[in-house]
C-alpha cells in the first residue's frame, strides 16, 4: 500500500466532485429539505417535543445514511462499467488504495451532509443541545456517513451494471429504517428481524444516539459506542476484499 496512491484517488474524486457543482448542491440541500418535511409532519400531528427528539435525531442520522450510501453505491459501479476501474488496477492501483481514496474523497461531502443535517435538526426542532452534545452527535453522524459509504462500495461490488445496483438500494435502505430502532424498539422485533438489524450501521448509530438524546455521554454505554466503529471496520474490510478487478 502506498499513501501517494490513496491521495491520488482521493484527490481525483475531489476534483470530480468540485467540477459538478449542481451535484454538490443537491447532495447537501436535499437532506435539509427532508428534515424540513419531517418538521412539517410533526407540526401537523402535534407530537410533544421529547417524543419528537427520540425520532427526529435518529431520522436525521437515517437521512445521512441514505444519502452517503447511495453516493458510493452508484459511483463505483459506474467506474466498473466505464472500465476506468480496470484501468486503475492495470496502472498499479490496489484495492485498499482505491477504497481508501474513495472514502477520503467523499468524506468531504459526508462531513458537509452531517453538519447540515445536524444544524437543521438543532434549528428546526430546537433540540437545545450544548456544544458537547452537538459534537458527540456530529461524530456519530459522521462515522455513520463514512461507514455507509463503505457499505455502498460493498454493495456496488456485487453489481456488474448500474441497473443491478438499483434493486440493492431498497434492500439496504428499507430494513435500515424499519428494523434499526427508529420506529420501534429492536427488542420487540422477531429474532430474525433483530438479526437483520445488526447488519445495518443505522442500528449501531441509533444505539449511541439514544444515549446522547437522553442526555448521557455517547460513551456511557461503551459497548454500543465501540460497536459502531468495529462494524465500520468489518464493512470496510469486506468492501476492500470484494472489490474485484475481474467482472
Amino acid at each position: 500500500m502506498r499513501f501517494s496512491r490513496i491521495r491520488a484517488v482521493g484527490g481525483r474524486v475531489l476534483h470530480q466532485i468540485a467540477r459538478d457543482r449542481r451535484f454538490v448542491v443537491l447532495v447537501v440541500v436535499a437532506p435539509l429539505l427532508l428534515v424540513f418535511f419531517v418538521k412539517t409532519l410533526f407540526e401537523a400531528t402535534m407530537v410533544p417535543a421529547p417524543a419528537q427528539n427520540q425520532f427526529v435525531v435518529p431520522f436525521g442520522a437515517y437521512i445521512v445514511h441514505f444519502a452517503t450510501f447511495i453516493l458510493t453505491a452508484i459511483v463505483l459501479v459506474r467506474e466498473r462499467v466505464a472500465e476506468t476501474l480496470e484501468r486503475m488496477f492495470v496502472n498499479g492501483y490496489r484495492q485498499v488504495e482505491i477504497v481508501a481514496g474513495y472514502l477520503i474523497g467523499y468524506t468531504v461531502l459526508a462531513t458537509a451532509v452531517s453538519v447540515m443535517v445536524l444544524a437543521a435538526l438543532e434549528l428546526l426542532f430546537d433540540l437545545g443541545y450544548d456544544l458537547g452534545r452537538l459534537v458527540e452527535a456530529f461524530v456519530i453522524l459522521w462515522l455513520l456517513a463514512v461507514i455507509s459509504m463503505a457499505l455502498g462500495i460493498l454493495v456496488s461490488n456485487l453489481a456488474r451494471t448500474e441497473g443491478q445496483v438499483i434493486p440493492f438500494i431498497p434492500l439496504v435502505i428499507i430494513p435500515s429504517f424499519l428494523f434499526s430502532g427508529i420506529i420501534v424498539a429492536v427488542d420487540v422485533l422477531p429474532r430474525w428481524a433483530q438479526a437483520i438489524s445488526r447488519l445495518s450501521p443505522m442500528y449501531y448509530a441509533n444505539q449511541v444516539l439514544q444515549q446522547v438524546i437522553e442526555g448521557n455521554s455517547a460513551t456511557s454505554d461503551f459497548g454500543a459506542a465501540l460497536a459502531l466503529p468495529i462494524f465500520g471496520l468489518v464493512v470496510l474490510g469486506l468492501a476492500t476484499l470484494t472489490l474485484r478487478e475481474q467482472s
Binding site: R2, R12, T84, R87, N91, G92
Partner: peptide, 28 residues
Amino acid sequence: GYMPQAPVLYQDLTIGENITFFARGHLN
C-alpha cells in the same frame, strides 16, 4: 502499458489530470 479499446478516461477531468492520475499508479 495498456491502452483499452475505447478511450477509457475520466470525461470530467482534463488531459493533464487524466494522465497524471494514471501515472501516479506506477510512479512515486
